[in-house]
Design a protein around this nucleic acid. Structure first.
Lengths: 163, 163
DNA sequence: GTTTAGTTGACTAATTTGTTCGGGTATACA
DNA sequence: TGTATACCCGAACAAATTAGTCAACTAAAC
């Protein structure tokens, strides 16, 4: 289980699809514009998401992507695994160059940690993230009750974001 | 909080130091040989670990690295943060190019997930990993009671390792 | 003073990330 | 039947990151 910006893009895009999918399929062009992710990159990501059965596509005009399952049935772990392909398998997967025990120590160790992180992210559903996001939007609307001039909202990134 | 092989190398090396640190400092050369990590790469990683106050160094003959605190006081999160520098801060940290709300949506979202993962990994101590590793070694020793020919132990990587 | 081992920095190859381009194909709609 | 929409696919690419190498230096033990 890797955790890179690639997976974040995928999750972000999936949240966007989940939030805008009420009235039919969501186009990647719309996601691209809203989330500022290059269209082609989205195409690559959604190709994987589709092949993983996480989203389904509708071609032609009025087409786009929609969730293949309910948002409550889709976990962050599934999304990340779909786009952040495994590769590696920790350097000796099926290879025979794994002779000394030490090597295996690393593997077992990380397999364990992987399991922990994976099961944690498996417990976080898209539905939860969407709900969290919608609440945040409501809070923001209430807080900035006065009509703020467009394009001036400061971006408050919690300190921990840099972690 | 990124989660890459770099962090894994660091944690693996730290476990090695923790397990072999009973009789004085552990040299990177020894870690390099046992864990099959390039010496120079370890030097880079331990440079960061030292500057983060996670390990302390002893120079000269008989020198090496030892934990700066008890293994029970060192979390996986600390190690990973030390070597996997933050960079990014999710693309707009202090920058002013964060105008539309959507951008901030991503940030808040990931800050939240970061917090979750971070606090989870903060709860995993080096001492726990060492204990887990020692138990595994004991199990392996009991299981492979017969004297296995050197260099033939198969490397069993759990399926989930590929995740 | 010689050896050990940390310390630093520069430099490199390989991989990953994110993007751009250039073409396809399926479908709704006129 | 045509045309616009939007999914699909692959190649090529710059930038960043990862992992490793090399070389020179400093502190300490013996």
């Amino acid at each position: 289980m890797r955790l890179t910006t690639k997976g974040r893009f995928a999750v972000t895009a999936m949240i966007d699809v989940a939030m805008h999918g009420a009235n039919g399929p969501v186009t990647l062009a719309a996601v691209s514009e809203r989330q500022r992710i290059s269209l082609s990159y989205l195409e690559q990501l959604f190709g994987k998401l589709r092949r993983s059965g996480i989203v389904a596509s509708v071609r032609g005009p009025g087409g786009g992507y929609h969730l293949a399952r309910a948002a409550a049935q889709l976990s962050v772990a599934q999304i990340i695994v779909a786009v952040d392909e495994p590769i590696d398998a920790t350097q000796c997967g099926g290879l025979e160059n794994c002779h000394d025990d030490r090597r295996c120590m690393t593997h077992d160790l990380w397999a364990g940690l992987n399991n922990h992180i994976f099961s944690f992210l498996s417990g976080v559903t898209l539905a939860q993230l969407v709900a969290q996001q919608e609440q945040a939007a409501i809070r923001a609307a209430l807080h900035d009750a006065r009509p703020a001039p467009a394009g001036t909202t400061p971006c408050k990134v919690p300190v921990t974001a840099a972690v």
